[in-house]
Design a protein around this nucleic acid. Sequence first.
DNA 1: AATAAAACGGAGAGTGCCTCCGTATCTAAA
DNA 2: TTTAGATACGGAGGCACTCTCCGTTTTATT
Lengths: 192, 192
Amino acid sequence: MTKRSPAVRKPRLDAQRNRERILEVAKEAFSQLGANASLDDIAKEAGVGAGTLYRHFPTRDALIEAVYRTEVEKLAAAEQRFSETMPPIGALRAWMLLFVDYIAAKQIIAPALNSLVGGPSKLYEGSRGQIQGAIESLVKRAIKSGDIRKDLDPFDLLRALIGVSNVASAPDWPQSARRLVDILIAGSRPVK
Amino acid sequence: MTKRSPAVRKPRLDAQRNRERILEVAKEAFSQLGANASLDDIAKEAGVGAGTLYRHFPTRDALIEAVYRTEVEKLAAAEQRFSETMPPIGALRAWMLLFVDYIAAKQIIAPALNSLVGGPSKLYEGSRGQIQGAIESLVKRAIKSGDIRKDLDPFDLLRALIGVSNVASAPDWPQSARRLVDILIAGSRPVK
DNA sequence: AATAAAACGGAGAGTGCCTCCGTATCTAAA
DNA sequence: TTTAGATACGGAGGCACTCTCCGTTTTATT
């Protein structure tokens, strides 16, 4: 009597694969075409039927929210990975570049979430903490190694990145954001 | 040779009427159903054909933007009118209630404008000034009459109103906003 | 290998978007 | 007034998107 009925069956991995593919394609589509990108097209490009997409994400908002969560989780996970495998400055830079992608996702999300019950705050609260924790770790490490100034406020970097994203309009804004990352890094180095 | 060709012809007033009706219905529809409300439906409810709607507002964004501008203009005009015909406190209260409607419009607009070239800032800049000017006048007048405290910062009132709107989620948020207006007014009176 | 649960896919009905153009209405001139 | 022609109207219709439904396929278990 170890296992009663087959209550817990291993989840099918084709389902999981599809879910991930959809998420991937959706993120691209949303930041490319905006929050109204065609869901049928997303399904097609992900190589699944419309039914599959809707089974995984019953509504457009559900898909958008999932994309958003995924991005935040990737950001948090990446901080760990980068810190373990890269020199302080490299890790910081890599993470900031990833953050640019995150902004792209977030810009799509924020508006769409207005229609969700409970408002956007619930979703943001948790993720904000994760993100702040990540950048703080990265900056502290880089300060300790002497690569950047001691008086740098980690959040200033975030604010600068987000600030740019709010002015963003042209379809090539990711490039300008990338340039900004390098400028920020350069400006964060110790004087002399 | 006073007037060359009939270059300037009076605009037809049926066109103007229709334009206004559409704007009116659109505002209601957008704040009710969100920024994706059906344009065909809006046209129908305004008693015009789809073609008419699209002639006046070629794109959805154009319509949304027009709604927004209209709201801001109404706000500015109302400040004048209220100040001339109402006692200081009454004018302030009436204007703040109108501001609640404005928020409803703005909430719709902000997201949708992300897709406009140049970003939302261009649209906000001008209107922000108009609104700040309005509340400032109203508060100053009420201070002069002794109805509210001398140290009240007009913008605090705006911030409070906007703050509420960001937490707003339930479909009955206008009511709660109205309650807040009264609380704010009460709290702004002089001590004793 | 057999079985049934789990997941898939895509056709299709419903709805929305937006254009096109024949018709109606209005302004200004005669 | 009447009239001309400029201006605006409306809604049918083609195309795109949404989302459901259910017969078929794939997968984990026995």
